[in-house]
Write a protein that binds this DNA or RNA. Structure first.
Lengths: 262, 262
DNA sequence: CACGCTTACTCGTATAGACGAGTGGGCAAG
DNA sequence: CTTGCCCACTCGTCTATACGAGTAAGCGTG
């Protein structure tokens, strides 16, 4: 095994007032940034770093936890600590709901993912009527109950997005929208067939750390935030006809918007 | 001092295979969610929790570090651990660069913040020519050097955003754009005066954990991600005339976009 | 009254040790 | 050769202890 003294990592500065575990984290971070440890590569084990720096194990673990919080590394029980690989990113363009993209039988997610050479998958579909949350009710214009469509999207087996659509019952009940599979073009195509010509969307974007439940459903590594997107669809009469609440693994997405300068 | 046995926190389940520090974190998280501990309020001290649960201090600290990673609490040396208050949020609407908002003498940031009753502030302004990064060069169409305008925005004394604008030298050099204060309406007004009629913007949005440098300049609490926004401005001839790279404290922003359904 | 010191309480850093549990390779038995 | 066990190595959890350093309030001194 190659010794750590081979130069990858330096020494501690005992005169520095920077905490030892921070100095170690700094050195590891720099080594990662410089590409000395590449994506997916294993870092030195805790024991090796204990030997190299002459500190206690908890100190080394403390360093790792700093880097984990930054989303730089992740630990695997029984294997080691690894540089977190940057997954393929899904680009969401602002024209992704344009009518011209609504022709095919497959969902936008599926089409786009296959074009990018990934294996898409949709699961945990749940469609049911329920009480509207205060926020959803406000966005939809004071409706009491709604149809909720929940689904999770996976890319190459990895969950990347969890979304729930809420629709007023007077629009959705008894229509294909209330079916698990709403048919080609998705619920937006069905809405237009039902006479609700879509006029525009409004999207609100936040970023935050995930709740424990979100960590579970999206199988998030520590140090990965989520993008929380809330889209409201309005028809040509100005009525809100759908609210879609989406939580995305932030490391899997880039959102892209085109804005007029007028 | 009120005893912790007053019911705020429960007991541990020794039969559970959930780690003790996770159980403690769960109980604290639930108490926070239920509002038993309010925003800004102090949680029980480490010593109190040690007594209450009968565990060692490191175990309690481990619980706190979980909650810190979730952005729920923050520790203050010598004082205690507090529920992290949700700061006032700045809303960025997609029409914020419309020409009609470009009339006044003050910057959009200043106008908007004062309207919201906050005290805005802009500092660390740096304007200089420099070598374009590979990414900026690609976005601007293979320029070698650029004018960089760096500034930091504060709201009520708290840094919330750090932005750098990059402009091709052939456009910006020797113009008011190269001055620390470009004048009323900002650099977009100057660009239009110089004959570059703005046509549209493209914005790319990512979310991630901050680098150590970003933690410093934005004075970020741990567990707060950043929103990374890269805007490219195009003139009516289709030329990219500015790239603006912005890093925002995610807990201080909601981005809002209006999309046509066409 | 005002100032400065002491003191108690807070979290921060670090050590040393123990046991548990997941992983994977090697080796021995069948 | 295959199967299954063992073992070495990995990280996960927890304890107990020690000292440092920031904070705030009280108390005594001038």
């Amino acid at each position: 095994m190659p010794s750590l003294s081979s130069g990858l990592l330096g020494d501690l500065d005992p005169t520095s007032d920077r905490a030892v575990f921070r100095q170690i984290a700094d050195q590891l971070r720099e080594a990662i940034d410089r590409g000395r440890f590449k994506e997916g590569e294993k870092l030195p084990s805790e024991a090796e770093l204990v030997d190299h720096y002459g500190v206690s194990r908890m100190t080394v673990r403390n360093s790792f936890s700093v880097l984990q919080g930054e989303g730089l590394v992740h630990a695997e029980h029984g294997k080691g600590v690894f540089v977190r690989p940057r997954p393929p990113v899904r680009r969401l363009a602002s024209d992704r709901f344009a009518r011209r993209h609504r022709e095919q039988g497959k969902s936008a997610f599926t089409v786009e993912a296959e074009a990018a050479g990934s294996h898409p998958q949709v699961d945990s579909l749940e469609v049911k009527e329920e009480k509207a949350s205060q926020d959803v009710s406000a966005r939809l214009g004071s409706v009491r109950r709604v149809l909720a469509r929940r689904r999770r999207y996976l890319l190459d087996g990895r969950p990347v997005e969890f979304a729930t659509s809420y629709l007023p019952l007077d629009i959705a009940r008894g229509t294909p929208i209330a079916e698990p599979n709403p048919g080609p073009g998705g619920i937006y195509a069905r809405l237009e067939e039902l006479g609700h010509r879509l006029d525009h969307f409004e999207e609100e974007i936040r970023a935050r750390m995930p709740s424990p439940g979100e960590v579970r459903t999206l199988r998030l590594a520590s140090g990965v935030p989520v993008i929380h997107l809330i889209r409201t669809a309005y028809d040509s009469e100005g009525r809100a006809v759908e609210v879609c609440d989406t939580v995305m693994a932030a490391d899997a997405y880039v959102l892209s918007y085109q804005l007029p300068a007028t």
